[in-house]
């Protein structure tokens, strides 16, 4: 721990105010979302507590506002602040799982392609190239469409979350694969790997214990930047109505709902979830940018 506070990473973190602020903002977002069920003022999914009388209340500082609903309520009388916190939880969860999915697939493919080389490399990388030629939203829509057609509606609602995670994850892994393959090609020719080969270690063991730890820094950067991208993708899908099921609204779902009332005066229903989304994505992105610079020895 002491070593960490003495390290260059901590130093570069501390000396960049933008990074510190975005870290704090990101932390607030994450905690707010994770602990939504504990700290949110209302439970927007508890149908019993919903009062249609309270529908379309503007934020509390407006003339007709109600201090109980700080950011106002939506068409069904749900507290916006609480809905945003629950929605952020879904968004973050989907984004995080999607990134983990693409990281695991991408790193494995990249490692094997880079280390094995030859035909294996060509085959895996051509698949990645083909994957990259499809816009990720298109891939996600395609996956979602196929699943919708294949399974009955009730089942679909149950697995919808996993479908979204898979759809977003599968469209992003080539980026990881390419980066890891590049670093692996460099590491593979380094002499410490050759020394392990002279001993006769199996390729699997060399990849796992020697190459993998040395190609992970760029992966960390891409994963962070990808998290914000995945959150945005999820929001886009949910906005288009093919994302998470309406029973578990994410930020994207909230924005879609709000979009219907945007021009009838109830602006807060769309704007606040939108701001929450922007703040979350921006802070994660800034963190990713910093991480990229901090881990790049050339810029140090």
């Amino acid at each position: 721990m002491k070593a960490f506070f003495d390290s260059d990473i901590w130093w570069s973190f501390r000396s960049s105010p933008v990074t510190v602020i975005s870290a704090i903002v990101a932390a607030v977002c994450v905690f707010g979302a994770m602990l939504a069920s504990v700290i949110a003022p209302h439970n927007p999914f508890d149908l019993a507590s919903l009062q249609l009388m309270d529908a379309f209340k503007p934020p509390s500082w407006e003339a007709e506002g109600d201090p109980v609903y700080v950011l106002g309520t939506d068409d069904q009388g749900r507290d916006m602040l609480s809905a945003i916190m629950y929605g952020a939880r879904v968004s973050l969860m989907v984004g995080f799982c999607a990134v983990v999915f693409s990281t695991v697939v991408g790193v494995t493919v990249g490692l094997v392609a880079g280390y094995m080389g030859g035909k294996v490399d060509s085959l895996l990388m051509r698949i990645a190239d083909i994957q990259l030629t499809f816009p990720s939203i298109l891939v996600a829509l395609l996956v979602d469409g196929v699943v919708r057609a294949a399974v009955p509606r009730e089942v679909h609602d149950q697995i919808a979350l996993f479908v979204v995670i898979f759809a977003i994850g599968v469209s992003n892994w080539p980026q990881f694969a390419r980066t890891v393959r590049g670093s692996t090609l460099v590491e593979r020719n380094k002499e410490y790997v050759q020394a392990a080969r002279v001993i006769g270690l199996s390729p699997l063991r060399i990849m796992r214990s020697h190459v993998l730890p040395n190609v992970m820094s760029p992966v960390l950067v891409i994963a962070t930047l990808n998290l914000s991208f995945a959150i945005l993708s999820e929001a886009t899908l949910s906005f288009l109505g093919v994302g998470v099921p309406p029973t578990q609204p994410s930020l994207g779902t909230l924005i879609r709902i709000g979009n219907d009332f945007l021009f009838s005066g109830e602006w807060w229903i769309a704007i606040f979830p939108g701001i929450a989304l922007i703040v979350m994505v921006l802070s994660v992105n800034l963190l990713g940018d910093w991480l990229r610079d901090a881990l790049n020895p050339k810029l140090r």
């Binding site: 380094k190 002499e191 410490y192 020394a195 002279v198 001993i199 006769g200 730890p213 040395n214």
Partner: peptide, 24 residues
């Protein structure tokens, strides 16, 4: 090379002291 006892009898030392040890 297929026999680990024989393999352990040969070893190699490399040129670049900065690349020949796993930094992690």
């Amino acid at each position: 090379r297929a026999d680990s006892t024989q393999r352990s009898r040969m070893q190699m030392i490399f040129q670049d002291p900065y690349a020949s040890l796993n930094p992690r």
